[in-house]
Design a protein around this nucleic acid. Structure first.
Length: 440
RNA sequence: CGGAGAGUAGCUCAGCCUGGUAGAGCACCACGUUAGGGACGUGGGGGCCGGAGGUUCGAAUCCUCGCUCUCCGACCA
């Protein structure tokens, strides 16, 4: 993409409404525009990152055996009345009436609807286990939206719903999502720690929040240091096999957010030099809820013994739009964003230091064409800005690799390749740069 | 939902107290000089001063009431 043809409204100054670093950087990098409190338009750069994150989540959901669907944003109130949540949810739920005065709501989540879909078609245990997921915009009318996309009212969320015949099966489904989450976040360059979470009236130990450690995190967290560097299962992990050892390895170490923190237990179970007390951002949650929805909604399946039983359910959310902010919180410096390669909006920044100069233009155009042909996503700054402005702009938007081409270097046959993350610069020939970047 | 604050150019803000034809820097357009870490000069465009009512000969400025946004706290992927 040529920058001269792209839409990238960078801001030199920080808009006054932005308090935390990810919000500031997203506004300055032209990723989002606020349209109302907690409601954002996604501009091209931000949209690219959002789609990359969504795709990683999709791939890991699919790998774990979940099946993608798409449910609507607007839902009829009837479903929610069946489960009693229409009254229970409160003013956070955006309620709407259509022209026929029918009650609708903008979905804050989809348990009720997915259970309706399930009960309409699935009658036999033979169809189980089943896990249906979608990635859809949600709306929760937060009293006080803030922190940009980290806590908006409208947000993009992947939510998966598992259905099993019994609690043992539900636990296996839970474990599959747990491991899929470890993999998905890791692929985005995030280090996440699953922490015990509120389980509500169901009880048990089957709810975890996946937390990214960041100074600006909303909640205080406490965990065992060994959890920070525990290896994540690679893509060969067998989701049909027994995942319990992987889950147990983590869950047997102390990890809790401040809501459920037990200081005495923390001190008893974790040696002093292993105690981590930090702040974190929740980017996902896995939750087993049993028959909470299947009983009121009569979502029954016939078991091998011929008896009908309410299906055992769990739900599993990932805050896709929140992740954009969370990744920036975890990966930036004074100059701007530092994208992990897997979610970067472009792979390479190509900076033409003197557009209009025939030799420089020719070298840049040629490299741009070759890198693109090699399958690389290149943002080519072919504008007339001065070098300093170009450097600052590219540092701000944080593409992993920058390649800088100018007349001085070309006289010596050299271009500069810079790593955004380390700042390391290396001079090399055009051919060497092409080879390095096209294959990395 | 309690408390606090802010709405003036695309962005950051001044002007308001003490009413008299709306400003700066950056950004934008034109021309020129420039060119390896956010250049400089000259010229130019851009505002129902958030809205409605009121006071006044005259309101960005004073008064009243909504609206919107932000921040602190209680609540949430």
């Amino acid at each position: 993409m040529r920058l001269s043809r792209f839409f990238l409204p960078l801001l030199r100054e920080t808009p006054s409404e932005a308090q935390i670093v990810s919000h500031r950087l997203m506004l300055r990098a032209g990723m989002i525009r606020q349209e109302a409190a907690g409601i954002y338009a996604w501009l091209p750069l931000g949209f690219r990152v959002l789609k990359k994150i969504e795709q990683i989540v999709r791939e890991e959901m699919n790998r774990a055996g979940a099946i993608e669907i798409l449910m609507p944003t607007l839902q009829p109130s009837d479903l929610w009345k069946e489960t009693g949540r229409y009254d229970a949810y409160g003013p956070e739920m955006l309620r709407i009436r259509d022209r026929h005065d029918r009650e609708l709501l903008y979905g804050p989540t989809n348990e009720d609807m997915v259970t309706e879909i399930f009960r309409a078609y699935v009658k036999s245990y033979k169809a189980l286990p089943l896990n249906l997921y979608h990635t859809q915009w949600k709306f929760r009318d937060e009293v006080r939206p803030r922190f940009g996309v980290m806590r908006g009212r409208e947000f993009l969320m992947k939510d998966a719903y598992s259905f099993d015949l019994d609690a043992a099966g539900a636990r296996r489904s839970y474990n599959r999502m747990y491991v899929a989450y470890l993999r998905a976040f890791s692929r985005m360059g995030l280090k996440t720690i699953p922490m015990r979470a509120e389980t509500g009236p169901i009880g048990g130990d089957l709810s975890h929040e996946f937390i990214v450690l960041a100074e600006t995190g909303e909640s205080g967290v406490f965990c065992h240091r060994d959890l920070l560097d525990m290896p994540v299962p690679d893509e060969t992990v067998d989701f049909d096999g027994d995942l319990e050892p992987i889950v147990r390895q983590r869950t047997e170490l102390y990890a809790a957010t401040e809501d459920v923190h037990d200081a005495a237990r923390f001190e008893r179970e974790v040696p002093e030099d292993k105690r981590v007390s930090a702040r974190g951002i929740e980017v996902g949650q896995v939750f087993y809820f049993g028959t909470k929805y299947s009983v009121p909604m009569k979502a029954l399946v016939t078991g091998p013994d011929g008896k009908d039983v309410p299906v055992e359910g769990g739900s599993y959310g990932i805050g896709v739009s929140r992740l954009v902010g969370a990744i920036i919180e975890a990966s930036h410096d004074d100059a701007g964003i530092i994208w992990p390669a897997a979610v970067a909006p472009f792979d390479i920044a190509l900076i033409n230091l003197k557009s209009g100069d025939a030799k420089t233009d020719a070298a840049c155009d040629d490299l741009y064409a070759k890198l693109t042909a090699a399958g690389k996503d290149v943002l080519y700054d072919d504008t007339n800005e001065r070098p300093g402005a170009k450097f600052a702009g590219m540092d701000l938007i944080g593409l992993p690799t920058q390649i800088v081409i100018g007349p001085h270097g070309l006289e010596k046959g050299l271009v500069e390749v810079k790593s955004r993350a380390t700042g390391a610069k290396e001079e090399m020939s055009l051919e060497a740069a092409l080879k390095r970047l096209a294959t990395s």
